[in-house]
Computed example of a mutant assay.
Amino acid sequence: MDVQALKQKATELRKATCKMIYASKTGHTGSDLSCTDILVALYYGVMHQTAATFTDPNRDRYIQSKGHAVEILWNVLADRGYFPKSDLKTYSQFNSPYIGHPNNHVNGIEMNTGSLGHGLALSVGVAKAAKMDGRSYHTYTLMGDGEQAEGSVWEAAMAASNFKLDNLTAIIDHNGLQISGKTVDVMNSEPLKAKYEAFGWHVIEIPGNDMQAIVTALETKPVAGKPTLILADTTKGCGVKFAENKAEWHHKVPTAEQYQAALDTFNQELKEGAK
């Protein structure tokens, strides 16, 4: 897909995700909308993995450390054909595998995640395995900025540099908010760029809801011997004005009026993008 098509796809998936959250009456709305563009760039533009190649040992790997933003991931995987879209009607219902965090009983999920601070360490192990096995696949992981307060993140960051994992790209959804407020107030982990560079990473900072910037960063050739961090400055609740930059929308379901307003916004964007 070209960048315009990727933008259209991101809008379609924001709309589908909001529909699922509204129907199920649960979900991390703000967190999902924040990272939608990143997942679209990965799954439709950059990552060498499809539903047909998910069991191929040479496929690229994706581990979503920011597991609470699973609603957008479920919609991406369904749209890419990993499982039928109709399955998502059971989201968060009793005995459904489509639960509130990634579940590796579902096709397309590498590992269970959701306990924040684990995803980077898991990804370091997967990337190290590729080096040991002589495989060429690349490993991607998406973290939230709130989880940067976890000590395991920094142990993993140190290990990634130590093992020269230039086949690893970590992305931080850097929206500045977490469930209990601003990250700088809850537990200030800034300056993230300088810290990761001090840990031996190659860092690229981008506007994280700019599709062209995301694709360019993901397609940038790795620096030999260094893992890559993409520090994506995003907007929590991106695309829905009443939810943007508000911590309360970390986990919140829209009212009927808010839901209709969101649909109107997405429909207008899709109409304009189709011109």
Rank of each mutant, 00 (worst) to 15 (best):
residue 3 V to L: 11
residue 20 M to I: 04
residue 22 Y to P: 00
residue 23 A to E: 05
residue 26 T to Y: 06
residue 32 D to Y: 00
residue 35 C to R: 03
residue 36 T to S: 03
residue 36 T to E: 04
residue 47 M to G: 09
residue 49 Q to I: 15
residue 51 A to Q: 13
residue 58 N to T: 01
residue 62 Y to T: 01
residue 68 H to I: 04
residue 70 V to P: 12
residue 71 E to F: 07
residue 73 L to E: 02
residue 74 W to K: 03
residue 77 L to S: 00
residue 78 A to N: 04
residue 87 D to C: 15
residue 90 T to A: 06
residue 91 Y to V: 13
residue 98 Y to V: 08
residue 101 H to L: 11
residue 101 H to D: 09
residue 109 I to D: 14
residue 114 G to Q: 05
residue 120 L to I: 02
residue 125 G to W: 01
residue 128 K to R: 10
residue 138 H to A: 01
residue 142 L to R: 05
residue 142 L to E: 00
residue 147 E to C: 13
residue 148 Q to R: 10
residue 150 E to F: 02
residue 151 G to V: 07
residue 152 S to Y: 05
residue 153 V to D: 15
residue 158 M to S: 13
residue 159 A to D: 00
residue 166 D to S: 08
residue 167 N to I: 05
residue 187 M to V: 13
residue 189 S to Y: 07
residue 191 P to K: 05
residue 193 K to L: 06
residue 201 W to E: 01
residue 201 W to G: 08
residue 205 E to Q: 12
residue 206 I to P: 10
residue 208 G to D: 12
residue 211 M to F: 10
residue 212 Q to K: 11
residue 212 Q to T: 15
residue 215 V to K: 02
residue 218 L to I: 06
residue 219 E to P: 04
residue 226 K to M: 15
residue 236 K to P: 01
residue 240 V to C: 11
residue 241 K to P: 00
residue 246 K to H: 05
residue 248 E to N: 06
residue 248 E to D: 14
residue 249 W to N: 00
residue 258 Q to P: 03
residue 259 Y to Q: 00
residue 268 Q to L: 08
residue 274 A to L: 09
